[in-house]
Design a binder for these strands. Structure first.
Lengths: 199, 199
DNA sequence: AGATTAATGGCACCGGGTGTCAAATGGAAG
DNA sequence: CTTCCATTTGACACCCGGTGCCATTAATCT
């Protein structure tokens, strides 16, 4: 997608007048105040001092605003999988990496909770999330496939990825309703159950 | 929702000029010809000889057209769960009921495949499906919760429901790409793996 | 024949999303 | 400084899904 090497490249042409990060900030404030559905793209754009058309050059859709740097985080998760020892049992590795993937700095926990609250509770975002989850699953399936010596599209890798995602979502929902329990603990427990076949 | 007792009630007022089933038929033809996204509600309405406004009295959204009588089928699944023997292991019951739920009459297999192809492959429908899946999971979670003596919202029932759905979706995707393999076999295998913890 | 009950469909409107294009902004070359 | 070029911006028009409103149509009941 974007060039990695150039964060501040000195190149010709008009400078961007804002950033994804700034738009996200403005948008989240409005979402907090009026709710996601009641907030229009026009309002977000106006709040950020840009035109509506320009908003859609920073984000593909209004839904995408809430997802932050998810794609980049997925790359990190892929790295994590690569770093696991080859003799570690498959589901144990999945469990460890998924828990690790969802570790959040204490200072960011609140923001993360609000983000996930939107994603898991607002119907429009629930729906949109499916597409992102697909990317997440692809990472897990890829790892599982390699361990199993199968294709990523085969039944078992796909089933594992789907199941792992499902358990992670259940954990998130539980976490949102029980703010006092650490997310990682819930995730770890759920994935442990999965590895045991819920017996 | 609708009255069960009255299929052809003699009551005052203008008669409905079409049916969900008929609209579904018209819509599927257009979807087949032009694709889901390229087919507009106007075209479906025109094809069925009704007004656009009326279409939205038969279906809440364009997306809903592809789901047929899903809600009613869920009721059947709930019944299936109720009928299981109390001493049957939890995941074995889930496996059996889910497989049974997805049994389709041979004559309907083709239509079912096209339906699922839309749901699983068209991004707009993938997204929308999340909401329906939520209802499906609720049925599974309810059963699991009763067996485990926990609340349906607790972590384990939710995790089981999420995981079972995930595996079922993986099976469906596999089935779509391997038309020669019976869906039930794939489902059964996937759910068996789940019950074993993918060990 | 009314009165009543329901479904219809036209109309205007909202909001997300896109294609197009002229204008604005900045660096680089003369 | 001026010209040229690259890039972003934002206005405008348009499409489409979805909704509120309301007069009209079609049926039954009295």
């Amino acid at each position: 997608m974007a060039d990695k090497a150039a964060e501040l490249p000195v190149r010709p042409g008009r400078r961007r007048s804002t950033s994804q990060y700034e738009l996200e900030r403005v948008a989240f404030e409005l979402f907090e105040r009026d709710g996601f559905d009641a907030t229009t793209v026009d309002e977000i754009a106006k709040g950020a001092g840009i035109g509506r058309r320009t908003f859609f050059r920073y984000f593909e859709s209004k839904n995408d605003v809430v997802w932050g740097s998810f794609t980049e985080q997925l790359d990190q998760m892929r790295e994590q999988f690569r770093g696991r020892l080859a003799d570690e049992p498959l589901m144990q590795a999945v469990r460890a990496v998924v828990v690790e993937f969802n570790k959040v700095e204490p200072a960011e926990v609140d923001r993360h909770r609000r983000r996930m609250d939107l994603i898991l509770r607002v119907p429009a975002l629930q729906a949109h999330s499916t597409l992102r989850y697909g990317d997440w699953r692809a990472v897990v399936a890829e790892f599982a496939a390699e361990r199993l010596g199968e294709e990523p599209g085969a039944l078992r890798p796909q089933a594992i990825a789907h199941a792992a995602l499902g358990v992670a979502l259940a954990a998130y929902e539980y976490w949102l309703e029980h703010p006092d329990v650490p997310l990682c603990d819930v995730l770890d427990e759920g994935l442990a159950e999965l590895a045991h076949g819920f017996a």
